[in-house]
Every structure is written in structure tokens, then in C-alpha cells.
Simulated assay, not measured.
Amino acid sequence: MQRRHFNLAALAALALPALAHAQPSRPRIEVYKDANCGCCSQWVAHLQAFGFDVASSDVDDTGVYRRRFGMPERLASCHSAQVAGYAIEGHVPAVDIRRLLKDKPRAIGLAVAGMPAGSPGMEDPRNPKARAAYDVLLVGKDGATSVYHRYPAVAG
């Protein structure tokens, strides 16, 4: 009986590091937003629901942070963020940010220009499944963009 107990304990000790590694991490993301913008707060809630540790700051001018992070002005939206050295501009879905952190491309970050209807934080409570088509753009170090993820329109 003691031998079996030891074997189970040994197996558990070997499995613990693997289990710890399998646990989802909580990446810290710093969000800079307008205090009066409801969609920004909803995007923050979206990130939290997907396991991000969000530090949200209300600021007078998000452009200051966009420029600091190197995000081109032409991709401006209503909030700017930074996670693991990457800039995140606008209503980028959490799944795309997670993919960015996993893939680790040489890039400035991700952007969803404007405020597309149905993107995270821009949902219509009367028709929450509806979505306008939009692209999440990968912004290269040179400012050039490529489509990272295309979201088709959904009628809802």
C-alpha cells in the first residue's frame, strides 16, 4: 500500500509542472481611453472576459499613446493599448491579441481602424450577433499593414 501511495505521489509531482504550464496566462494589457466612451469600457470588459489583466486609464488624448507606441495615425480609433511591447489600436478582438502574443511577429501591433459595428465593444444590444465586415490589421515595423484576420458581415 505504501508503495502505491509513493508511485501516485511521484506521478503527481511529475504532472504538476505540466499542469502549471497548461494553465492559461493572464497577459497584462494597458488601455488608454476616454472616460466618457462607453464602447471603450465594453472593450475592456471583453478583454477581461477573455482572461486579460487590464489596467485601464482615462486620458484626455489617446493620440499621445498611439504615437508613443508607433501606431500610424491613419489607423486611429477611440482607444489605444499596449501588451507585451505590442500596440493595440481600436476594437481588436481578444482572440487576435492572444494569437499575436503566441505568434510573436516582428510588428508594431494590431489595429481595427474606426469603430466597426459588431466588433468587441461595439455590439448592438438589440441585435448582438449582427456585425459589419471588418479587418484586423497587422502593422509592420515600417507602418505597412496586412490583414491579420478578416471578419465577414453577419446579419444577426
Rank of each mutant, 00 (worst) to 15 (best):
residue 2 Q to A: 11
residue 3 R to G: 05
residue 4 R to Y: 14
residue 4 R to V: 15
residue 4 R to L: 15
residue 5 H to Y: 12
residue 5 H to G: 11
residue 6 F to I: 15
residue 6 F to T: 14
residue 6 F to L: 15
residue 9 A to M: 08
residue 10 A to F: 14
residue 10 A to M: 15
residue 11 L to G: 10
residue 11 L to V: 05
residue 11 L to S: 05
residue 12 A to K: 11
residue 13 A to K: 12
residue 15 A to S: 10
residue 15 A to K: 12
residue 17 P to A: 13
residue 20 A to H: 11
residue 23 Q to R: 13
residue 23 Q to C: 09
residue 24 P to M: 08
residue 31 V to G: 05
residue 34 D to L: 00
residue 34 D to F: 01
residue 34 D to M: 01
residue 36 N to I: 07
residue 38 G to M: 09
residue 40 C to A: 09
residue 41 S to L: 08
residue 43 W to E: 02
residue 44 V to K: 04
residue 45 A to W: 03
residue 45 A to D: 05
residue 46 H to K: 09
residue 48 Q to R: 14
residue 48 Q to P: 09
residue 48 Q to F: 09
residue 50 F to T: 04
residue 51 G to D: 13
residue 54 V to K: 06
residue 54 V to D: 07
residue 57 S to E: 11
residue 59 V to D: 08
residue 64 V to C: 05
residue 65 Y to N: 08
residue 65 Y to L: 08
residue 67 R to K: 13
residue 67 R to S: 01
residue 69 F to R: 10
residue 72 P to Y: 02
residue 72 P to Q: 06
residue 73 E to W: 07
residue 75 L to P: 02
residue 76 A to S: 15
residue 78 C to P: 01
residue 79 H to Y: 03
residue 79 H to G: 01
residue 80 S to M: 00
residue 82 Q to D: 02
residue 82 Q to N: 04
residue 84 A to C: 05
residue 85 G to W: 14
residue 87 A to D: 03
residue 89 E to S: 01
residue 91 H to S: 08
residue 93 P to C: 08
residue 94 A to Y: 03
residue 96 D to Q: 10
residue 96 D to H: 05
residue 99 R to W: 02
residue 102 K to C: 00
residue 104 K to D: 04
residue 104 K to E: 07
residue 104 K to S: 10
residue 105 P to L: 08
residue 106 R to E: 14
residue 107 A to G: 03
residue 110 L to G: 11
residue 112 V to T: 02
residue 114 G to F: 04
residue 114 G to H: 04
residue 115 M to K: 00
residue 116 P to W: 02
residue 120 P to I: 09
residue 128 P to H: 04
residue 130 A to H: 10
residue 130 A to Y: 08
residue 130 A to K: 13
residue 133 A to G: 05
residue 133 A to N: 04
residue 134 Y to P: 08
residue 135 D to K: 03
residue 135 D to N: 12
residue 137 L to S: 07
residue 139 V to R: 03
residue 140 G to V: 13
residue 140 G to Y: 13
residue 141 K to R: 15
residue 144 A to L: 06
residue 145 T to F: 11
residue 145 T to S: 14
residue 148 Y to D: 04
residue 148 Y to P: 04
residue 149 H to W: 09
residue 150 R to G: 00
residue 151 Y to W: 15
residue 154 V to H: 09
residue 155 A to T: 13
